[in-house]
Structures are given as C-alpha cells and as structure tokens.
Design a protein around this nucleic acid. Structure first.
Lengths: 195, 195, 195, 195
DNA sequence: CCGTAAACGAGACGGTACGTCTTGTCTTTTC
DNA sequence: GAAAAGACAAGACGTACCGTCTCGTTTACGG
C-alpha cells in the first residue's frame, strides 16, 4: 500500500474532501453533467466510494459544494455609487459568469437538476439561490439607499425584470449575451422606471 | 380486430405508438421526469423495448412527442388589435402554461434536459423552442404592423425583456407568477418603450 | 464494440454458460475457493455480471455446476463380481478422488459450504450428494443381489461404516488415505459382517 | 472499581475480552456463522474494532476461543471399565455434541472453515483437533491397557473406523445419529475385531 | 508523584465485492 | 418487415465489511 491512511477521530480528512471536489470539477469540465458519476469521482480523486457517500448524498451535492462556493467571490456586484454604472457593470459580470465560466456551466446544470428533482430544488434554492438572489438585487438596494430610486419600488419584481432576460437568454434561447445586450437591458430597465 | 397485432408488413403500428406515448404521459404524472425510464415506458405500454428504440432516440424524445405536439393550440397568442391588451392576455396565458399545466411541467423538464445534453439541446431548440419563440414575439410583430411600435425596435431583445422575467421566475426562483405580476410586467415593458 | 451479442428470445446462450463455468474452474484452481468471486468470474468469462446472476444464485452454485458434472464419470464403482475386490477397488478410487483430484478439492469445499449455509446444504444434498450416496452403496447392493450379503443387511448404515472413515480422514483429520488404509478398511468392514 | 477501564499499560482488559466473546456467542446463535462479522462483534460488544484485531486474527479465531475452550469438559469419555459400555456411552455423547449442541455447531463450522482456508486448517488441527482426536481414542487405549484389546491393534485406524461413520453422518449426509445408530456402530466395530 | 507507554473508544480511510438496476444492441419467433 | 420477448455486455448504483490508521483518553507502572 503506497498512500498513507488519514483516519482521524476528530472529523474528516480535508485532503480527501478537496480531492473529491477537484475531481468533480475536472470531470464536469471533461464530460459534462451526465458524464459525472460518483464512481468516476472517487476513482479520479483516489478516494474510496464510501468516502464520497459518507459526506455527500449524491453527485449533485458534490457539484454544488465544488462550484458554488466560488460564486460569492466571482459575483460580488461592484459599487460605483451610480445606479446606471452599477447595473451595466453587474449585468456584464453576471452575463460573463453565466455564459463563459466553468462555474456558470455548473450553475446552469444545477438549475436544470432543480427542474428534475423537487427535493434537490428546495435544498438548492434555500442554500444557494437565495444568496445569489441577494446579490442580484444588491445594486438596486444601494440605489434606494442613495435616493436614486423610490422606496416604494417593489425590489423583487424589479430584480426579476432586470436579470430575468439575461437568465432567459442563457438558459432558454442560448443566445450570446454580450456587453451591448446587457447595456441595452440596463437602459431599458432604467427607462421603465421613469415617471 | 380484438387481438393486438404483432408485426405488420406495411409500416409501423399506430397502436404501439399511441400506447408508448400514453405510457410516457402516465409515468411522468406518477413519478416525475427522473422516474421515467425507457424500460418503464415499454413495460407500461405492453410493448417491446426495441419498439421504443426503433422510433425514438431517448425517453426525452418520447416525452417531446407526447407532450409538445399540442403546444401550438394551447399557446396561440390572442389578437385583440391592441398591444397592451394582447401583452397582458398572452403573458397570463404563458404564465399559466409554464406554471400550472402538465405540459408546462414537461416543457420545463425539457429545457432542463437541454442544459445537460448539448446534442439534445440543439435538436430541441431547432424543432420546438424556435416555434415557441415565434409565438412569444408575435404580439410585438403585430403591434409593429399596426404602427403601435416603431419598425426600428429590435424585436428579439424586446421579446427577451418581455418574457424573460417570466421564464426566470418559473425556472430559477420558482415563485408564483400570477396575473398581477404579469400585468405589472407588461406595464413596465411598455413604459420602457416610451420616448 | 468487438464481440457480437447473442441475445435470443428462446433460451440462454450456451457460449456464455460455458465461458462462465470455465472461468470459475480456472479461478478456483488459481486462487482457491475463497478467492473466487462472481465479479471475477464475470470478468474472466468476458460476460456481464448480470448474466451470471440470471442463471446462478451464488458462486457456490456456479462451482457446483462447473465441477460436479464430472463426478459420475470419475467415480463409477467397478464391478468384478466379487464383493471384496469391488470394495477394495472402489475405496481406492474414492480415496484418490477425494484426496488428490481437483474435483475432489471442490467437493470438499462444497461440503464445507454446506456447513455454513443451510439453504445451500439442502439443495446440494438433494441434487448431488444423493447421487454420490447411491454410488457409494452400489457395491453393497450388487453383493446382496449376488447373494454374498444377506438381504436383511441395513445398507444405509453399512455404507456409513464403509465410507465414513474415509470421508472422516479426508475432511477432519486430513491424513493421507493410501491403498493400505483403504484395503484394511475394506477388510475390517467385511469382518464386521461375519456371523 | 465501578467504572470500566479504558486502557492499561500492562496487559489487556478482561472486560473487553469477555464482551467480545459473549457478543460472538450471541451473534452466532442469532445469525449463524456466515452472519458473524468482526464489525458486528465489535459493535455488539461495545468495543472498538481495533481491540478485536489486536487480540484475534479473524472472526474464526474469536469463535474458536468463544466456544471450544470447554470442549474437554463436555466430551470427556466415561470409564466404566468395560469396552462395550464405554464405546456405546462415548459415541452417544459425541453424537449429541456434534448434532445437537451449539458448541457442536461451531465445531462443524470450524471444520468447514478448515476446508476453505489452509492456514487456519493447520492451526486448528494442531491446537484443537489433536486434542479431540486423543479423546476419541481414549476408550480404546483404556481397553488395551485392560487387556480387552490386543496391543498389536492399530489404534489410529481403529479410531477412524469407530468415529468416522459418525462424523460422516453429521458432516456429509446430515442424517440424525440417534442412540440406536451409535449402538449398532459400536457393535459392528467390536464385531470387526473378533478373530 | 509524575511521566510515559500500553490499551482503549471512536471512527475515517482506501478498498473489494456484493446484488440490483437501466441502457442500448442483438436474435429469434410470430404475425 | 414490424412487433413481442427477452438475453446480452456494459457499467453505475448504494451497501456491507474488510483491515489499517490516527486521535485523544484512561490507566498503572517505574524512575
């Protein structure tokens, strides 16, 4: 036996955890969501299958943990102190994330999984989408605080109208969403708020 | 003709085709998308597995055929000759379809499947989503023809901004999208077009 | 895919059956009883695991079928028309089989398995030991027919006393049972029948 | 000393040893030999798996220690000063032990295990079977000393012929071996020694 | 009387094999 | 030539134990 064991009374092996998450990451990039299997993850990570099952319920759980931890860092909305600038910048950031990064690909896969598995959907929405939702509405909240937007504005629905078209393009029509598109989306959004 | 036939020199068995589609329908209702398997469809339909494979490539294809053949009838946008009325009515229709009907549930499952399987995605977008897209923009096209909207309007992007938030609510946040929501969505959309 | 499939509506694949039995045979010879696994058999035979499970309940069942079919040929008791000669010859044959042949090794392993698994024990005793038992008592039956032994003799118990010591040596004490031993066993057996 | 101790610089914990042996006892009674696992023993005994491994090599070793330590007491051959009486009594004792007691069941399981595992076989035969063998031949040795049997008698082979049929019935054919059977076996054995 | 070493409980680890399930291919027989 | 029936190779599923290892605690001896 070449590799040492690292059993330990006080909690799990961080090395094994990281190996699993990285293996899941790699496999997703290589073979796509359907090509990821728990057996494959374990084999790639050099880890026993049981070790995966000990800590995660399904491959989806692994992928959730593997990829969505980066969401916060990658997607913190900028704060320029100006609504129009903020929206433009954030929509560009979000568009790039959803459409061009590996994490975005996983994000899409997880949302897809949520359509197919109601139990997962509830868990995923509670643990991760809620947080993402908070980021999505943050630029608007700041603008209300600055007085750029009226406090009477329904921020939930406004957020839907702001980012909804972008998610729609990415998930449903699969058309590219470049900077021009997001800039015009921001403009139209602002125009709809004019009196 | 009391006995089922078992083969036929002249083309496929319509009885088998119908049995497959109905079995797929039933199974989806009973167990959800993930619970549908080709094996299960064949067993339920009283049909050989090979018969399913002969005519469809995957369970997704069966479901596509089973549920989306009558999309057009359910979702034809009404024409009242007035943009505001048309939008309100159509968004309500679309919201009800996506959120409350069985066909809508399948539609969501298929969009999800498209995230996971690129080959299917291409086929699905070409054969079905394109058509749906045409229906989604139809009210706007009519308005341009009637002169209610300028011919310079980018209809594609306008459609994104119109229906995107609705799809987003349904697919991503899974919040209810009632008539008030869609009415306000139509209003905001129209407001964003004002000079 | 290189190998052709051999699915068939009516009945099993003889090729698959033979491959499994031969693989089991090889593995037993190479690694011993404990080293034989269904996974190993399937892999060695180039067969799917499910194909093994379809036709056999356990590795023991495979080994039973693989090896005990030869029993009849190897162990048919000779008929010299003389009880003393027959017994001497048959005990030598049986001693050699139990102690020195591969089939004998499997036979011992299966009797061992019967101690550990009551369900298997019942099946094994019914299908195979009964037949072996018939062979074991055949020399005595012939002698009764020839008038060399009284018809009042309890053949069952006589058989126990004849072959019991030989099985005991093989299974329990693991001492060699050569020709001298079996010859003396035959003599003692005959002596116990004298009036 | 109310609290159980959890370690000790010099020597093992007698409490842990007893708990393991009793757990093995219980599990064997409940689930049979194949159902006993080291993991199960440790869990049932409230002991760490490593504690079992520290002191025993395998579950078989545990069972050996759990059941066979008092073999001697249960199976000491009686001494009536008369060969015929002694044989009858001892064969009945042995038959009851092999066929009807828990210890006998374990004994059979261990003989079975010896067929499957050569390393265990050597150890088991040396440590336990040799002793049992001595008990088996004791009645004959006494008779030789008393002058009831000639000193030229090969006691080893005589013992084989005496107890062999009984082990054979128990291990191989699994037929009941009641008092009539063992009595007739003793008679036939004695008859075979007549001049 | 304090340090230290053995044995302990707990349990995570890398593994192997289990028996089940579904997939998509292939063959035979029936109509 | 389509359909029913179903065997087949392939391989993932989730579970049960294996035997090894580390951790922190308990205990008793020995300097």
């Amino acid at each position: 036996m070449s590799r040492p064991h690292h059993g330990n009374r006080h909690g799990r092996s961080e090395a094994a955890r990281q190996a699993v998450l990285e293996a899941a990451d790699d496999l997703l990039a290589e073979k796509g969501f359907a090509g990821v299997t728990i057996e494959g993850i374990a084999a790639r990570a050099g880890v026993a299958k049981q070790t995966v099952y000990r800590w995660w319920k399904s491959k989806t759980e692994v992928l959730v943990e593997a990829f969505l931890q980066d969401l916060a860092q990658e997607l913190t909305p900028p704060d320029h102190g100006d609504l129009s600038l903020d929206l433009r910048a954030y929509l560009r950031l979000l568009a790039r994330f959803l459409g061009e990064t590996d994490s975005g690909a996983v994000f899409r896969a997880l949302i897809a999984q949520a359509q197919l598995d109601p139990a997962f959907a509830a868990d995923f929405r509670e643990r991760y989408l809620a947080e993402q939702r908070r980021r999505d509405r943050l630029p608007l909240e700041r603008a209300v605080r600055r007085g750029e937007l009226p406090v009477t504005l329904d921020l939930d629905e406004a957020t839907d109208r702001l980012v909804g078209p972008l998610y729609y393009r990415t998930l449903v029509t699969d058309q590219p969403a470049g900077g021009e598109f997001t800039d015009r989306l921001a403009e139209a959004f602002l125009a709809s708020l004019e009196p």
